[in-house]
């Protein structure tokens, strides 16, 4: 049986890992290479590196970092942040990434998904969406870009469907409302997208407890959970999370 994935996310700024709280705070959470090795040993199923500076000079730092991680960590690696064209993708994939995560760039130029999928295969193209509920109680979410600063007015579910049509092999759905709150994922959003696309959906934004992870995978119907702060500060290890999910009857990989 296909297991559900737990994916620690490392927000990288200036080559150091930092935590994101509603896209703002900057508390330093350690060296990304060290953290990657630690997560690998504690059972992470994949790792995501998100470059929150995403400028040209930092792309070189990111490439070097990816190469170091890929030399010692033999699980799938995804990189996101500031990737704008197939050449950026190629550089990241060559440095050791297995997938690239596209967010703002897909709104500016949706064809980037198709170009990436055609050149590198759908399995490397992750369509990452930052979504905010338009009003409390509403079942419409809109897509925001530029790290949650610009509202595009696009319907988040329709945008996920469009991304898959263009060739994305996976959707990361990040709730802006829940991000950094540690109050739990937006389960309505996750369920809505999981039922609308044929590709795997990764839940993002809001994990604070192990129960939140279980909810995203059961009620939210997500195939994987992305989490940052609950693991970075070692409130819980990935292994703790897997023990908990296994007790709840959710299939997870424990033979790492």
């Amino acid at each position: 049986m296909l297991t559900r994935r737990i994916i620690p996310c490392l927000d990288v700024k200036n080559g150091r890992n930092v935590r994101g709280v509603r896209f703002s705070a900057d508390r330093d959470a350690g060296d990304p290479v060290e953290l990657a090795a630690y997560y690998n040993q504690s059972g992470a199923d994949e790792l995501v590196f998100y470059d929150i500076t995403a400028s040209a000079e930092h792309r070189d730092i990111m490439r070097g970092l990816l190469e170091q991680v890929a030399d010692q960590v033999f699980i799938p690696l995804t990189v996101g942040g500031g990737i704008r064209n197939p050449d950026d993708m190629f550089q990241m994939l060559r440095a050791g990434a297995d997938k690239v995560s596209l967010n703002t760039a897909t709104v500016e130029n949706p064809e980037i998904i198709r170009e990436g999928a055609n050149r590198f295969g759908s399995q490397c193209i992750v369509h990452s969406i930052d979504a905010q509920r338009v009003a409390e109680g509403s079942d419409r979410w809109e897509v925001w870009t530029h790290g949650g600063r610009v509202n595009t007015g696009l319907d988040a579910i329709a945008w996920a469907v469009r991304g898959v049509e263009l060739g994305a092999g996976e959707i990361v759905m990040n709730s802006i409302d829940a991000d950094g709150t540690r109050d739990g994922y937006d389960l309505d959003l996750l369920r809505a997208v999981s039922r609308s696309v044929p590709v795997p959906v990764v839940a993002s934004g809001g994990a604070g407890t192990l129960e939140h992870l279980a909810e995203a995978l059961s009620e939210g119907e997500a195939h994987a959970v992305l989490a940052a702060s609950i693991f970075h500060y070692k409130d819980f290890t990935v292994d703790d999370a897997k023990e908990y999910l296994a007790e709840k009857g959710i299939p997870v990989r424990k033979d790492f």
Binding site: T3, D45, P200, H223, A224
Partner: peptide, 10 residues
């Protein structure tokens, strides 16, 4: 099925 079959399996 959700395709691709992506993740860890036995």
């Amino acid at each position: 099925l959700h395709i691709p079959h992506m993740g860890w399996n036995q």
